[in-house]
Write a protein that binds this DNA or RNA. Structure first.
Lengths: 139, 139
DNA sequence: TTGAATGCAAAAAATTTGCATATTG
DNA sequence: CAATATGCAAATTTTTTGCATTCAA
């Protein structure tokens, strides 16, 4: 039985076709806003899924640690599969480009706050803003 | 002449009473959503400021580097004075508590991505999610 | 069977936009 | 004066809610 099913059942939750499609859509997209997920889910052949179901589904899956979200820009939250979150996002405020670096880059930082505050950081969906090499150059 | 005026003028922008009040409100609040800023601005005696002015004002001030924003929760963005941003937020997904640690905690991380990608990270408004000591304990 | 989940449609929030008017520089 | 900002109100966009119905376990 899949991890997804196991995780859901452990909390008395159910694996519905819609939730499966949401997960599949995120797998295909990588990152997406709730709206984007809805659009992708609609493109998989079956009937469209109600917006409220998308929101509730993402929330449920996030609680289970199946998906996570981050804010790449000021507007909508961006969701992705937690398993796919093996990188940190570097968002350039100059040109909007989003680069990625391994989570290991921040291991010392994570270790420091764990030691000083007992805080266990989940940087699997961390977005760091700043300026990329290009934009920093012709600043 | 204040930095605020200088920064604004350098871009042909103007220092209006409303912008001054927005900055003052943020100074009093520390962190606040656009809505929160509007409420605080309204409490300072003068007439209320239109919501659109709050949004446009925050955007303008952010471009100038006077204020910055971060996302403490999934919903609204949280603004603060850039000068007040001398810390990183640790947001507990378990209980919602927001702790702060000095930006120096992440200096090696910042240095690493600067070296490897030439990316100059601005962690003055970084929010790291995870679980605080308390929530991690009785997990 | 039974409670969790969905669809739908309406309600709330949160932002944005157009434009005439007021203000700053 | 000229160009930038504001106020207002309407239009969008995004997210949430209530409830009858469906469906997974």
């Amino acid at each position: 039985m899949s991890d997804l099913v196991t995780a859901l059942r452990a909390r008395g939750m159910r694996l519905t076709a819609q939730r499966r499609r949401i997960v599949a859509a995120l797998g295909r997209l990588g990152h997406a806003t709730p709206d984007g997920v809805a659009a992708e889910v609609a493109r998989d052949g079956e009937a469209a899924v109600a917006a409220s179901t998308i929101y509730r589904g993402l929330e449920a899956l996030e609680e289970l640690g199946i998906v996570a979200h981050t804010h790449l820009d000021r507007r909508a939250p961006t969701y992705h599969l937690a398993g796919h979150a093996d990188h940190i996002h570097l968002v350039c405020v100059g040109c909007g480009v989003v680069d990625e670096v391994p989570v290991a880059s921040a291991s010392s930082f994570v270790g420091a706050i764990a030691a000083s505050r007992g805080f266990r950081a989940d940087i699997s969906h961390l977005a760091v803003h700043g300026r990329c090499a290009g934009c920093e150059g012709h600043s």
